[in-house]
Amino acid sequence: MKHLYQDKSTVSITIAVPMLLQSLEGARLAGLDIERLLRKSGIEPQQLIDEPEKRVPLDQYVLLSRYTAGAMQDEIAGLFEKPMRIGHFRAMALTSVHAKTVGGAFIRSIEFYNLFENSVQYQIEEVGDEIIFTATRIPGHKIGNTYAIESSLTVQHRFMGWLANERIILNRVTLDYPAPSYRHEYHYMFYDAPVEFDQTAITLRFNKHFMSRPIVQNESAVEGYVRRAPMDVYLPVSAGGKVTVEVRNKIIHYVETNNQQPELRDIASAMNLSQQTLRRHLQKEDSSFHVIKAQIRRDFSINLLGNIELSVEEIAYQSGYTEASAFIRAFKSWTGFTPYIFRKGLLS
């Protein structure tokens, strides 16, 4: 996957072809018609052969993932020892969202997945100021390829960050296999964290302060996340510095109180800062008022699209746009989808 975090509101997200082909390995071995799955997702099979350096838009990759999982009734698409029947992730997510903190959510998730003894066992431990999340291969169990490992780690890591509405910055990632041909994707997959290959263990390492972050999502939000899966895994998340988090909370409170979008001066005033000082603090955290505000609009509009009683025009207005056309352009820049395709293709 590829995207630049400098401008998170207008990001264009694409997936490397070698990574996409790895995701289909289990389906191929199971005898599924791969060309049909690709065409159904809007991807021309011959193009993948003729142009292996080409990148596939996120919307097509999301549809392909959903069609493949549905055809196999397996959320890991044949890459683990046993199928992960449709509903596994939803059950884990609904269990985890009721934890009070990220640490509690991690523990609930680990306990859930370990019940099934399927290819990997997870554990988490605190060593000094660092948290080490480990995935250990179960002896004798199949793991189809490197994609099975990296996708499992990414889903777990991104979902926990989403629960707290914060990017969990990784100190280091260790993997027990050689670097794949698409190793450059790991730069984006793991938020620029150093990735070490051919190590003795599969781990994600991050500062322990993330474990105390409060869970801010609820069951309704989880249901939306599941309906959109795996799209949210690939959407950019703000870096989540202290000022960024406070600004985000202030914007949400302002919208709820005033039923309109704030300007920079409104939030700066609420924080007893000058506009220039607030801009400088956000810049130090690799963020900006514009980016934070756009992400809130994105999240808000995505949730509203789950309500089929609301028209796109009504959602545009509630999201702070005076014209539906401007909202549609913005929504496509955020997700790669138009609101209509998103609702029809992913929420049906």
Rank of each mutant, 00 (worst) to 15 (best):
E81A: 14
N171H: 12
A239V: 11
A105P: 00
S41N: 08
R343K: 14
L170M: 10
E75A: 02
E196Q: 15
T10G: 12
N114D: 12
L278M: 15
E126W: 01
T154Y: 03
K2W: 04
I251A: 00
E196C: 14
A164Q: 02
P139C: 08
F331M: 06
S238T: 11
S41P: 00
P57W: 00
V17G: 04
S311K: 09
L4Q: 06
I267S: 14
N249V: 09
R183P: 04
E51D: 14
A193I: 11
I86A: 06
Q283G: 15
R227N: 08
F133I: 08
L347F: 07
L29G: 04
V222K: 02
Y225G: 06
G336C: 08
K100M: 02
I107A: 15
A77I: 10
S152P: 00
N258E: 03
D176I: 05
L79M: 12
I86Y: 04
I124R: 01
V195L: 10
A294G: 10
E44H: 06
T10K: 12
Y317E: 09
V127W: 08
E111N: 15
F300I: 14
R298Y: 07
D192W: 02
Q261A: 13
E35P: 05
A270R: 06
K142T: 14
G78F: 01
Q199T: 08
Y122H: 12
Q156I: 12
A193C: 10
I251N: 00
Q275H: 06
Q123K: 14
S319I: 09
I302M: 09
H281R: 13
I15R: 03
E111C: 11
I131T: 15
R265Y: 03
D299R: 13
D266F: 03
F112I: 10
N114A: 11
H98D: 05
H3C: 10
Y61W: 11
G128A: 14
P339G: 07
N249E: 14
A164W: 08
K40Q: 14
K54T: 15
L273W: 02
